[in-house]
Design a protein around this nucleic acid. Structure first.
Lengths: 337, 337
DNA sequence: TTGTATGCGTTATCAA
DNA sequence: TTGATAACGCATACAA
């Protein structure tokens, strides 16, 4: 079914059908009715091959906003962005990235405003705050669809979330814990930050599942590592001083490198560690045998998929509604890095 | 850079440039030279948005040949095919699948011949035989590019291999073995079939890496399971009778379900098992706790990527040369199935 | 040996 | 309120 065929069926011209399809008005109500009915009946959808040609002329820009500075985990997500964009040069698509350090809401709003007037779609790692949600709704009102990546945000009417299931990621770490300990351990945990929903959900998934499958693992101690190596180093050191019987460590967020340094400094390389994300510093510690296994969330794929979905919406000229693309939680050990 | 621009630069018409690009002849040598030089200089590549429109008229067919019957692992690969094809309906691409049981070379040649006259590209899980390689070379000569999927074949001049690194998959299983045994075990192995290169490479990767990292793991016994549950059942039973001290099992190929049944029948559910691929029967045994972990090769993604690459070649109208798309070896436990 | 005209499906512009 | 026409980039039949 093409516009031409619809036009012929209705006895009108392509132009008229186009005006109906793109809601440009200036069409007699009866004609519009007829066209809409035949479209519904014949199941017309825009042909993306045809769209591709005209999209090119618009030179659409996909905007991206990330809290990525100082966190090497996001290097892969950004690489995924570029991988996708490089496939789309022939469609005239370009990327406009804005990054920031930390999780300041005002700053993120500022970055969005900086690009919102010249973008066709937005990909964002949102801070979970009502003002951000409101901004995303506002953009949608202006016809700019948003894809959340890596973290999701509630009540934002974003079109699609691309990221991992953090709760399941926690449970997966618990399953690994059982495998490497055999169900007996004195465990201490370094947690992340409260302002990131993902960290909370991971911890919840880990603790509840581990309780269920390993009643003999003792939760000895717990401190926050603030999502960075420095705090994680200090937290680990304090806990090991308080509780020398600790033989297993779990870290919920970034900062595993700090944890490992503490373990090395205290001469406790017998301790088994489970962490998240195979960033370079973590990989080094896995090769050294300190971190036994990590759970990963396919950041490269997250970035790639987010851009592709933005592009698909631009091309098909339809907005997704509350979709979710959930990455599998991948387990990595030194051998399959 | 478009054909039009090239034509203008050379002071000729689009038609002439087209004749050069598509090697149709009937062009004065000097003109051809000029055009080829400017094309090289300006870095012209066909615009895929423009190609998309004309490709549609050709209604290209991608052919697929698989030794998949009776092996549920391939269900996911085929699903991946369909996922990709469903994204390509607007380009007029269709799929023509032929499947067979077992690994008979004559049969596979027959299937290829069945479809070779009406396909634009071939996706195949090749039997590693010189006659198959010769056939693939012949197709390439006819302008039909081949993508090998899941298994590769030497000296075939296939354009691209999409599949896993079996050697690394073996090493990954060895790494898992260390994690769950702590480096002490009496191990028995059920191998696959000799005619599949992947099975040999996996075994090699597993044994050599395990020897290196776990000198205290004893290789107690070994039998072939013939890539199916029935043989694996019998092989496991025989080995456990011969060597009751076995406490760990590793199976290289399909048939883990048979191995698990043997272990259950003999009342030896204390035994730890590592296997490959999360097919439904394997998943069931993981949930039951018998199989501790499996190494997977992303069959869904393999199928999807193979078709997309075939499509990309059709669209860009260029043949890849000896590319490799290697899937990561994924570790799965009950928690991240 | 070369150029011109037409079409693929969508969209924007202009004329009616 | 509507229809005709040109344009995007590529491909090809046909005319010169």
């Amino acid at each position: 079914m093409t516009i031409k065929e619809i036009a012929q069926l209705c006895g009108v011209s392509r132009g008229t059908v186009d005006r109906v399809l793109n809601k440009r008005g200036r069409v007699k109500p009866e004609t519009e009715d007829l066209i809409l009915r035949t479209i519904a009946q014949m199941g017309y959808t825009k042909n993306i091959a045809g769209r591709a040609l005209t999209v090119k002329r618009d030179e659409p820009v996909i905007g991206a906003v990330l809290c990525s500075e100082g966190n090497s985990f996001f290097d892969d997500i950004i690489q995924g962005f570029h991988n996708a964009i490089s496939e789309l040069v022939d469609y005239g698509i370009t990327l406009s990235i804005r990054t920031m350090r930390g999780h300041n809401v005002d700053k993120q709003l500022e970055l969005i405003d900086e690009i919102s007037d010249h973008i066709t779609a937005l990909v964002i790692q949102p801070i979970n705050d009502p003002r951000i949600a409101a901004k995303i709704r506002e953009l949608r009102h202006q016809g700019i669809p948003t894809i959340t990546v890596n973290n999701d945000i509630e009540n934002s009417s974003r079109c699609c979330y691309v990221g991992s299931d953090y709760q399941a990621g926690g449970a997966t770490a618990a399953g690994l814990m059982r495998l490497i300990t055999g169900g007996e351990a004195n465990l201490a945990i370094v947690t992340g930050v409260d302002s990131l929903m993902g960290h909370i959900q991971r911890l919840e998934g880990f603790v509840s599942h581990l309780r269920a499958i390993c009643p003999n693992i003792k939760f000895v101690d717990c401190e926050s590592g603030q999502d960075n190596p420095e705090h994680s180093y200090e937290a680990t050191k304090r806990m090991l001083h308080r509780h020398p019987e600790i033989d297993t460590l779990f870290i919920v967020a970034a900062g595993s490198h700090g944890m490992c340094r503490a373990v090395i400094d205290l001469g406790r390389e017998d301790i088994r560690i489970i962490a998240y994300d195979d960033v370079p510093s973590t990989q080094a510690m896995m090769r050294r045998g300190l971190i036994k296994a990590v759970v990963c969330q396919q950041p490269l794929e997250q970035g790639y998929r987010a851009i592709r979905i933005a592009f698909d919406m631009i091309l098909s000229d339809t907005l997704l509604n509350n979709e979710q693309i959930i990455m599998e939680n991948q387990i990595k050990i030194a051998e399959n890095l």
